[in-house]
Nucleic acid binder design. Structure first.
Lengths: 231, 231
DNA sequence: GACATGGATGGAACGCTGTTCCAATACCGC
DNA sequence: GCGGTATTGGAACAGCGTTCCATCCATGTC
């Protein structure tokens, strides 16, 4: 319940192995990355940090905050690396790809992006994309809708990736997984699911990353049509 | 572990109050709608059905399947109501709005849409949108990407709505919630989050449903640019 | 009409979780 | 040194999904 009270900045380090929110989040990210979302328990975390579960609560309010902080961390790493001088269109693609790759590397973060819309992770993505839309010359009235469309698309793909990662057994690779999904789709009733069946044949050889980028370009093309008829 | 073995179709009903997957899913939906996602426990479900938690497992494999089945149910209700003869563009808007409204009414389903991509809920949405894209004359090579973009956008908004519903305290209305988010956004550092701050002022009076539709139109406009340069 | 069979039921029990609580410890200003 | 506060570690608690199993009862057979 009681959270860190931050009295005075201690001039000397407490201990070499002192707990801190940073160290806890770092350990959590490692557990999440290596053993998956379900492996992150306060007991496992306490064991890795060689402490008791109660001690963690001095630095972190609850598990929800821990997951949110871990997500903020991996997203922030990506957003700081985005080039700032680039052409707006390219910058948006770079931001989107950065988030995509971050979720690809840390699938557990995908589901967490949906959390509170005032968390740094979400804010940085929205600001990064929205700022570039402004630079692109999108009419001010349309900027909010356009940014919302891009962000929601990115979130959708992120959530999808997170879900897929949860589905793929740790050993198998993604080609096998896609093959399994394609096989299921191919078995559907042709009269009811003709489009899904058609797409199933393309599913095996498609590249997630390229398709994601194609979606971004599609939305950017749609945004491009706004410039002329400034309605 | 053992699931229903479906020996012979019983010619007479077992009992008036016999358990069945349909009745269980129906009860689960009611609990989810009235008391939220966290209120759905096997104990609460058993109490509502006047049985024991063990009996439910005869009809439903586990909680994950129960949630998926409940989601399939609410999505199916929406998809069957979509007009079939309409102009493709309008049909896509109708499907998207149907899903949006369904998630608005049953926010818990939003997060569930990300589950296995071979569940009826996802398949029906993909087929409904993809089929209309074909009718729209989108080049076959681009149909998969275009459908993926639209579906992922819908999923993103759905997930966002689900998250927001989890955040809003049961009593308050959405205007109050939006106001609270806007207030937080307005307090951000202007040099770092100028776009988010600008958008915060529009957040209060914006309409989620309209903005969602604007996003759909944006993507459709982008898809429209594909027709000419059939590359 | 009695009987055996097996699908269906309900509730106790298990292992695990997030979280709380609290005695014990480590540290710092004096 | 000492006293008090910040921090720690682990036991305890309530609640969860799930499993297990003794019991029930509708049905087909004789």
């Amino acid at each position: 319940m009681a959270t860190k009270t931050q009295t005075k900045t201690p001039r000397t380090e407490r201990r070499m192995d002192a707990l801190s929110k940073e160290r806890i989040v770092e350990a959590a990210i490692k557990i999440l990355d290596t053993d998956g979302e379900s492996a992150l328990t306060f007991r496992a975390l306490a064991a890795r940090l060689a402490t008791g579960s109660g001690a963690i609560y001095w630095h972190v309010a609850d598990k929800s905050e821990l997951l949110a902080a871990a997500t903020d961390e991996v997203v922030a790493r990506v957003m700081t690396g985005v080039v700032s001088g680039a052409e707006p269109r390219e910058a948006i693609r770079a931001i989107a790809l950065g988030v995509f790759d971050a979720i690809d590397a840390h699938p557990w973060a995908g589901a967490q992006l949906f959390r509170e819309p005032w968390r740094p992770a979400m804010l940085q993505i929205l600001e990064g994309i929205g700022g570039r839309l402004r630079a692109l010359g999108v009419p001010e009235r349309a900027q909010f809708d356009a940014a919302s469309a891009l962000v929601n698309y990115v979130l959708g793909v992120a959530g999808q990736n997170a879900a897929n990662a949860r589905l793929v057994p740790p050993g198998t690779d993604r080609a096998t997984f896609l093959g399994a999904v394609a096989a299921r789709w191919a078995q559907l009733d042709p009269s009811e699911y003709s489009f899904v069946r058609q797409v199933a044949t393309q599913l095996r050889e498609h590249d997630d990353r390229e398709q994601f980028l194609a979606g971004i370009d599609l939305i950017l093309a749609g945004i491009g049509t706004l410039r002329e008829d400034a309605r």
